[in-house]
Amino acid sequence: MTRVAPSLLSEHAGLSTSGGSVGDFIALLKPRVMSLVVFTGFAGLAVAPGHIHPLIGAVAVLCIAVGAGASGAINMWYDRDIDAIMNRTCGRPIPRGAVSPDAALSFGGVLAVFSVMLMGLAVNWVAAGLLAFTIFFYVVIYTMWLKRRTPQNIVIGGAAGAFPPMIGWAAVTGDISLVSISLFLLIFMWTPPHFWALSLFREGDYAKAGIPMMPVVAGQRATKIQMLAYTLLLAPIALAPVLLGVAGVIYGAAAVGLNAAFIGHAITVLRERQGHRAAKAMFGFSLVYLFGHFAALILDRVSGLVGLIGS
C-alpha cells in the first residue's frame, strides 16, 4: 500500500501557534510506551551475569528511556498527517498545533544522538550500537517503510520494541547471548497479538487513515486466528529463560500461568461474534502479560542472589 498523501488535516497539523509546553514535549516521548521499554531494558540489565556499577547501570537505563522517547518524537513528526485523522491520536501535540513538526523532529534527533553517544561513552559501544539500531529500526524500517505499506508492519516492526532487554544485557556484558536473544523473541512474538487486539476495536480508525493493519486487510476472523497462532507459538519461547538457566521456579510458574491465560484470551476473542469486549480484555491483559514475565524474571534473579548471600 502506498503512503497516505498529506490531506488538509495534515496541513493543519503542520501549523503551530506556540513553542509547546513542557507537557507537550513530554507527550512527544510517548511516556506510556517508554515505561514498558524502560522496564524490559532494566530487566535485561538486572539478569545479566557480571557486575555493573549502579551509577553506570542507571545511565544505561536513562539512555534506553531517552532513545525510546526520541523514537517516539520522530514517529510523531512523520505520522502527523495520519495522527490528525485518527481519533486515537488526533490529540497528540503536533496535530492539535501545540508543537511544530520542525520542533518535534529537532527534539527527537537531538535526543537520539545524545542517548547513543552517552551510552557509548559511559557504558559500552555494543549497547550503544544496539540502541542506535533500535532507533533506526523504529523510525526508518517500521514508521517510514512498513507501517503504511504492509499488514505485516507489526510483525516485522515489532522488533524495534524487542531490543531493550538485549541493550540492558549488553550494557553489563558487552555482548549478545542466547539468553538476551530469547528475551528479544519473547517481546517480538508478543507484539502481533498485542497490537492486533488493539486493531480489532480500532479498525475504523486505521481504515480511515489508510493504515493496512491486519483486520483492515485480511478481516477480523483471519486476524483472530493469527492471534491465537502467535499466542501458541509464544508459550514455549516464554519458557526459554528457564531452559537456558537464567530463570528458575518463580519465573517458570509465572510464565506457565501467564501463557495459559493469554491463550485463553485468544480463544475467547476467536469465539466472540459481536462486539469487541474480548479484544479489549486481551489488549489490557497483554500489558500485564509482558510486565509479569519481566517482573518474575527480576524477582527470580533477586531471590537467587539472596539465596547466595544467605548460604
Score class of each variant (00 low, 15 high):
residue 90 C to Q: 15
residue 82 I to R: 06
residue 51 H to W: 14
residue 47 V to C: 11
residue 117 M to D: 11
residue 96 R to N: 06
residue 55 L to F: 12
residue 99 V to H: 13
residue 93 P to K: 13
residue 94 I to Y: 02
residue 59 V to M: 15
residue 91 G to M: 13
residue 80 R to K: 12
residue 100 S to L: 01
residue 75 N to P: 03
residue 76 M to G: 10
residue 69 G to V: 05
residue 105 L to E: 01
residue 97 G to P: 06
residue 112 A to T: 02
residue 115 S to V: 05
residue 54 P to F: 14
residue 49 P to E: 02
residue 61 V to Q: 10
residue 77 W to T: 00
residue 81 D to K: 06
residue 113 V to E: 08
residue 122 A to L: 14
residue 85 I to R: 14
residue 46 A to D: 02
residue 84 A to I: 04
residue 93 P to S: 13
residue 60 A to K: 09
residue 42 F to C: 08
residue 47 V to Q: 08
residue 94 I to G: 04
residue 99 V to W: 11
residue 81 D to E: 12
residue 89 T to C: 08
residue 71 S to W: 02
residue 62 L to K: 10
residue 79 D to E: 12
residue 113 V to H: 01
residue 61 V to R: 09
residue 58 A to R: 07
residue 113 V to Y: 03
residue 62 L to N: 11
residue 77 W to R: 05
residue 46 A to W: 07
residue 108 G to T: 00
residue 124 N to H: 07
residue 63 C to Y: 00
residue 103 A to E: 08
residue 47 V to E: 02
residue 121 L to Y: 14
residue 103 A to G: 07
residue 115 S to C: 06
residue 74 I to R: 01
residue 60 A to I: 06
residue 76 M to N: 12
residue 91 G to L: 10
residue 51 H to R: 15
residue 42 F to K: 06
residue 109 G to T: 00
residue 114 F to P: 08
residue 63 C to H: 01
residue 120 G to M: 15
residue 70 A to Q: 15
residue 90 C to A: 15
residue 100 S to Q: 01
residue 75 N to R: 04
residue 103 A to Y: 09
residue 100 S to M: 02
residue 111 L to Y: 05
residue 88 R to C: 05
residue 53 H to R: 13
residue 60 A to S: 07
residue 60 A to D: 03
residue 119 M to Y: 04
residue 123 V to R: 03
residue 50 G to Q: 05
residue 109 G to K: 02
residue 110 V to T: 05
residue 98 A to L: 12
